[in-house]
Amino acid sequence: MIKILLIFLTMCGAVFSLEIKDSKVYDDYGNSIKLKEYKKIVVYNYGVVEILYKLKSQDEIVAIGNHRNSIWPEEKTKDLPLAGPISKPSVEKILSFNPDLVIFNVMGNKVDELKKIGVPSLIYSNKSLENIIGNIEVLGRLTNKKKESLKVANELEKQLNSLKNKEKLKGKALILYSTNPPSSFSKDSLPVEILELLGLNVITPSFGKKSIISSEYVLSENPDIIIGTRGVKNIDDVKKAIPLIEETKAFKNNKIYKIDSNILLRGSHRVFDEIEKVYKKLK
């Protein structure tokens, strides 16, 4: 059986979980807002921005969180007003846009403070591929784009089913969250779900949320393929973090690739196209 080491270094920004219940929308943290149309939204999550553009709800975006990487569609999002860092949002900055809704990233939020002054807000959290599809429908309800959101959701369901029906990849995968120190994703993370969807047997050490991975552990798995993403500039990065990686099949056979995890883990509709690319790369 082929063993595969996949190194995913990401900026964990988000895949999301929203639920409609009793005419309200709830997030994973118990926060809720009224289920109605919102017209002035400050967004601190890039996946949400991309989804709103896909739904043609971009006119409802009044500002987005500061960003270094491109957000689709870049030619339009690059000119959006900035609302400050997603990890340390400022209430004063938020209020300067006079929003009727604020959507925060899990990296930082001011939900409690905004609640005191009557500004609705939610936290968008990392979940699963099915969550992405469901959240698109919720965002459609919040921006009066129900018809459009149902259409997009239906298309993504078909794409997800197509991915499930592809010829399965075979092998063992170890996914790393970082190389400094080298650490793995948890079992319930989106990267693990994606690779298992493609047929890989993903190794997830049971110690800790993001477990540190030793050189000895990597060598014991002896991967055949290594995929580096956003945080890996070259092979030297991996060698410094995991010296024994030079003894693996992946290193010896020059089976080293890179994947743009900014798209893969952003949690927008675009992740499904990115999974197709990952599949072709590993096939």
Rank of each mutant, 00 (worst) to 15 (best):
residue 134 G to T: 01
residue 172 K to H: 07
residue 266 R to Q: 08
residue 61 I to H: 05
residue 201 N to T: 10
residue 221 E to G: 00
residue 226 I to R: 05
residue 117 I to P: 10
residue 5 L to D: 05
residue 171 G to C: 08
residue 15 V to T: 13
residue 210 K to R: 14
residue 225 I to L: 13
residue 178 S to D: 11
residue 92 E to F: 08
residue 203 I to K: 04
residue 122 L to M: 11
residue 152 V to C: 06
residue 101 L to Y: 09
residue 242 I to Q: 01
residue 34 K to A: 13
residue 38 Y to V: 10
residue 74 E to H: 13
residue 109 N to S: 15
residue 21 K to E: 14
residue 273 D to P: 00
residue 135 N to A: 08
residue 160 L to M: 05
residue 33 I to Q: 03
residue 224 D to T: 06
residue 210 K to Q: 12
residue 7 I to E: 01
residue 141 R to F: 13
residue 253 N to I: 01
residue 43 V to N: 08
residue 207 F to C: 10
residue 73 P to N: 12
residue 38 Y to H: 11
residue 29 Y to T: 08
residue 194 I to R: 00
residue 133 I to Q: 01
residue 2 I to H: 11
residue 95 L to V: 13
residue 220 S to H: 06
residue 168 K to G: 01
residue 67 H to F: 15
residue 106 V to Q: 14
residue 102 V to K: 00
residue 109 N to P: 08
residue 277 K to P: 07
residue 244 L to C: 02
residue 9 L to F: 03
residue 8 F to A: 07
residue 93 K to D: 07
residue 269 H to E: 15
residue 246 E to M: 10
residue 123 I to L: 10
residue 59 D to H: 11
residue 105 N to R: 00
residue 137 E to M: 13
residue 166 K to D: 04
residue 13 G to I: 06
residue 28 D to W: 03
residue 269 H to W: 12
residue 241 A to W: 00
residue 239 K to V: 11
residue 271 V to M: 03
residue 70 S to Q: 14
residue 36 K to E: 15
residue 140 G to Q: 09
residue 106 V to T: 14
residue 83 A to V: 07
residue 99 P to D: 08
residue 172 K to W: 02
residue 84 G to Q: 07
residue 88 K to T: 15
residue 190 L to K: 03
residue 36 K to W: 06
residue 15 V to Y: 03
residue 193 E to C: 04
residue 131 N to Y: 06
residue 35 L to N: 09
residue 234 N to E: 10
residue 261 S to W: 02
residue 250 A to W: 02
residue 46 Y to F: 14
residue 190 L to G: 02
residue 215 S to K: 08
residue 176 L to F: 05
residue 101 L to S: 09
residue 127 K to L: 04
residue 267 G to I: 00
residue 147 K to L: 12
residue 180 N to I: 11
residue 120 P to I: 10
residue 144 N to L: 06
residue 224 D to Q: 10
residue 227 I to P: 01
residue 79 D to P: 02
residue 76 K to E: 15
residue 18 L to T: 05
residue 55 L to G: 07
residue 116 K to I: 10
residue 168 K to E: 09
residue 261 S to I: 04
residue 33 I to Y: 06
residue 44 Y to P: 09
residue 219 L to G: 05
residue 151 K to W: 04
residue 214 S to H: 07
residue 27 D to P: 07
residue 157 E to S: 09
residue 29 Y to R: 14
residue 4 I to E: 01
residue 280 K to P: 03
residue 176 L to P: 02
residue 206 S to L: 12
residue 252 K to T: 02
residue 160 L to E: 01
residue 31 N to Q: 09
residue 38 Y to A: 10
residue 144 N to K: 15
residue 190 L to Y: 00
residue 93 K to Q: 13
residue 98 N to F: 10
residue 237 D to L: 01
residue 28 D to Y: 11
residue 131 N to C: 12
residue 157 E to L: 12
residue 232 V to I: 15
residue 247 E to L: 14
residue 44 Y to T: 09
residue 9 L to G: 01
residue 220 S to M: 08
residue 265 L to P: 01
residue 58 Q to H: 14
residue 98 N to R: 14
residue 245 I to W: 03
residue 105 N to D: 15
residue 220 S to A: 11
residue 56 K to L: 10
residue 22 D to S: 14
residue 94 I to A: 08
residue 154 N to Q: 13
residue 244 L to G: 03
residue 153 A to H: 09
residue 14 A to D: 10
residue 230 R to Q: 07
residue 30 G to W: 13
residue 112 D to N: 15
